[in-house]
Measured scan of single mutants.
Amino acid sequence: KKPMSASALFVQDHRPQFLIENPKTSLEDATLQIEELWKTLSEEEKLKYEEKATKDLERYNSQMKR
């Protein structure tokens, strides 16, 4: 599977709780709203997800070399 971006990892982490809190929201709308939240994060908060994305890219690259 392809590597995930930092923002995609953020959405993946936050979507389940968002949908619990907003059960009538469609998956598409939830994703859009969480992506807007991503844009408001500080660089420090984004760094955690950027590090995860880097590790996921390394995983992807090692799988492609096999």
Rank of each mutant, 00 (worst) to 15 (best):
M4I: 05
P3M: 04
K2P: 07
L47T: 13
S42G: 08
R15P: 02
S7G: 09
A6R: 01
T54M: 08
E58Y: 06
S26V: 01
A53L: 03
L9K: 13
S26M: 02
A8G: 07
L37N: 11
E58K: 13
W38D: 15
E45F: 02
E45H: 09
K55H: 08
L19S: 14
E44P: 11
E44A: 11
Q33L: 00
K52I: 01
Y49F: 00
S5L: 05
A8K: 14
L47I: 10
R15T: 10
Y49Q: 02
R66L: 14
S26E: 05
S5Y: 01
T25V: 15
N61M: 09
K48I: 05
L37I: 04
L37Q: 14
K55S: 12
E43Q: 14
L41V: 13
K48L: 11
R15V: 14
T25R: 05
Y49D: 01
D56L: 09
S62E: 13
E58Q: 13
L41E: 05
E51W: 05
T25K: 05
N61A: 09
E51V: 11
P16Q: 13
L41Y: 02
D56C: 08
E43V: 13
E35H: 08
L41Q: 12
K46V: 03
P16V: 03
R66E: 14
S26H: 04
Q12A: 15
L27A: 09
K65Y: 07
E43H: 11
L41D: 05
W38H: 14
L37W: 04
Y60I: 05
K39R: 05
L37A: 12
E35P: 09
L32G: 06
F10N: 01
N22S: 02
A53W: 00
K39H: 07
K39D: 05
E44V: 10
M4K: 14
L47C: 09
A30T: 01
K1S: 02
T31W: 00
E44L: 05
K39C: 08
E43I: 09
R66W: 06
K1G: 06
R59P: 10
R15H: 06
E35M: 13
T54L: 13
Q33A: 12
S7K: 15
T25G: 04
E58L: 12
Q63M: 10
M64Y: 14
Y49R: 02
S62M: 10
I20F: 01
K1W: 01
A6K: 04
R15M: 15
W38E: 09
Y60W: 10
Y60S: 14
E35D: 00
Q63L: 10
D13C: 01
P3T: 14
S42T: 11
K39G: 00
L27P: 14
H14N: 08
D13N: 02
T31R: 11
L9S: 06
S7Q: 15
L47G: 10
K2L: 11
A8F: 01
A6P: 04
Y60M: 04
